[in-house]
Amino acid sequence: MTRNTRARHVRFLRSGWLLLLVPFLLAGCDGRQSVLVDGGADARILTDLFWVMLTGAVVLWIGMNGLFYWATRRSPAPHSQRMANWLVILGGILFPTLTLGALLVYGLTLMPDLRATGDGPVIRVTGEQWWWRVDYTRDDGSIVTTANEIRLPAGVRSTFLLDSKKVIHSFWVPSLGGKMDMFPGRVTEMTLGPERPGIYRGQCAEFCGESHAWMAFEAEVMAPEAFEAWLDAEAAPAVAPTSAEAGRGAALFLSQGCGACHAVRGTPATGRVGPDLTHVGSRHSLAAGRLGTSVEDFAKWVANPGAWKPGAEMPAYDHLTDAQIGAIAAYLEGLE
């Protein structure tokens, strides 16, 4: 081996080892959207499934490579017909049939737990371009509408009724459980039983158009009492603007026609085309996970939604002055 090729081999090995480090680097992410972080029993079941499959795959991979090594380096001579027959019958028929059968039974036994009936709130989520309409049904039958954020009580199973307006989306909070497709004109049902309070991240998991990748949401798991308090607050009409600037923003909101698409309950704005903004100021993110919720974020969004989400079905308001946009942003940010 020449010096040169040796150096190349060493380089290759080094880069190979670096690749092995990648999973550990990824493990350093905050895990709000990781299947391996379990926010509840469903995610734990799926995480176990993942590890079982991974371990099995690694063992098989090593075993197969061991056989290749054995057959090409250790014992390259032809085998007897008898030996070859047994190899095919055992390794080619019996082993895969039993392994796949066992995996199938294992996978099937997991399903009833993942599909247990809900005993918590019933939440209707509708996929839109590119955001989520969210309706909670309360015990008295009344409906609380919000958008782009899911809140769940810990310790009970919430039921999701999933629907879509135009195209297929998929509802997925990896740290809380599996995903379920949303079809136009057909309601699919899913339940999730989160246990660990925290803020997780959900993501549309079925390509649905230009801004599909920007169609995310925050999912907050709360203590049951905190959840009830939050739902009470969410059901209430919007608070009145508290500053003069926000007051100007409220007036602009109506005069600019925002209310044709957005509802702010308790005001003349009752549109249903876009997300309900009644309590948008208390959310964790803006425009389905695209931006934060600072006054600047609101201003950036209103001035030009398409700059943040290509194809967003909201017009740009770049004809407004910075002061006007700022006033609208102050109003929206105050809608807690």
Partner: peptide, 13 residues
């Protein structure tokens, strides 16, 4: 294999 779901799963869910 086709029959395993019939044996393991007892409901429509």
């Amino acid at each position: 294999y086709d029959t395993l779901p019939l044996i393991v799963l007892a409901s429509c869910r």
